[in-house]
Nucleic acid binder design. Structure first.
Lengths: 232, 232
DNA sequence: CATTGTCAAGAGCACCGCTCTCGAATTTGT
DNA sequence: ACAAATTCGAGAGCGGTGCTCTTGACAATG
């Protein structure tokens, strides 16, 4: 009974996968706003109306692609971290940074989908935010490990304002227990810098200056490792 | 004769302005990809085909809006710098950073237009890049003034790789003569951080952590001032 | 075997960017 | 002052879009 019912559901799951694959392929030529359900259906040899059996609207297809993208990026970063020597925090940090950049350069349109400007009337559903948190959580885990081992340098620079300290403490209690608020703020700065650099590179802002960007990126990632207090 | 010719051209310039204004207004509800010439024409009470007398294509309208946006942002930053005490480099720096953020928060859709993901098939024409350079040039000018006065601290951190040094020197020769390559690299990092932070705030990545972002932004801008070597 | 649920397909709606043509208005040249 | 040249707005129309609704075929269920 379950096996029989699965027969139909399996072909359905397969078709959903094919639709997403084709949509991803089209994303490469026409980005988010230009994704055409009709074109996807045409390429798959089916009527456009049939697609609505699988995705109730264009935005739902887009949402599925966004979640997939966040997950793929998170997966890539987590694998990069796992492959790095666990004792070498800076190596883990650099591996994660490079994993983000490599993934973004390999799937620029999927990256633009999740870190570019929000799509017109699109409202990100709940499911996306947990998927989006995987990368920052990975970076924080590195810092927690290093802090627990007592190898994290104390943050420098002007002291933080009370409000910012309170905000950081609140966030820390939920996802970074044990990490000093100053470190967490530095981590948010570094996290911003990481994606800012990748975005600027992908969106062409470095053309004419630090292009190719490989060495600049490595230098930036190292500066950020310094900022959060990782040992050299 | 000139006055007569101007009569027609004046109403033409006026209409171009109205079209751009209305397009900007629509950008607020449907972002770049969803900008509709027909809707603009409808709102202006004219036939959609008439718009093509003023903008040969939708992309040309978009380009005009993009250049206007870059210019408006550049103007805002330059005014902020001019209003700051010329002798206080950090005050100038902070004023510029806050000017970028304030402008972006006041016109989020125009900001997304120029610093979000590139529009589908859109290729940025030459005119945009000079307009885009105004903000980074302003930041570099602050550093040049301070360096000329001998008040710029020496960059810290690991030494840069030869390739990156060479890239920085090349850029420096064109737009930042006299500025050490290490400072220029730090400036590019800071420039990236500035827009990365503004983008993350506007695109909702800080929701749930450092939101509201006012104090975090100020702290970040100060850290970046430290990074480029500005005195406290 | 009949019923029930699922599915693809087609027609159709309102919208889009864009092109072309045509008549009216305006500017220009004489 | 009048004719020629240019500019302009409007309309029709092309092929495309997302999306809805209906219809008829198929497969799974009892």
């Amino acid at each position: 009974m379950n096996a029989v019912r699965t027969a139909r559901e399996r072909v359905r799951a397969e078709l959903i996968r094919e639709i997403k694959d084709e949509a991803r392929r089209q994303l490469a030529t026409a980005s988010a706003g230009g994704l055409s359900l009709r074109a996807v259906a045409r390429e798959l040899g089916m009527a456009s109306s049939a697609l609505y059996r699988y995705f109730p609207s264009r935005d739902d297809l887009l949402t599925a692609l966004i979640i997939d993208a966040y997950d793929a990026l998170g997966e890539a970063v987590e694998q990069a971290d796992a492959a790095a020597p666990k004792a070498d925090a800076r190596a883990r940090w650099m591996a994660c940074c490079h994993a983000v950049r490599d993934w973004a350069k390999a799937q620029p349109h999927e990256y633009a989908l999740i870190y570019g400007s929000p799509v017109p009337g699109y409202q990100a559903p709940e499911d996306t935010i947990s998927a989006a948190a995987r990368v920052p959580l990975m970076m924080i885990e590195i810092l927690r490990d290093e802090h627990a081992a007592g190898r994290l340098a104390e943050p420098t620079g002007a002291p933080l304002t009370p409000t910012l300290l309170r905000q950081a403490k609140e966030v820390g209690e939920q996802i970074a227990r044990g990490l000093p608020a100053e470190v967490l703020v530095a981590a948010i700065i570094a996290w911003t810098q990481l994606f800012g650099t990748v975005s600027f590179e992908l969106f062409g802002q470095y053309v004419g200056s630090v292009d190719p960007t490989d060495e600049f990126f490595a230098a930036t990632a190292n500066r950020m490792a310094d900022l959060v207090g990782l040992p050299a």
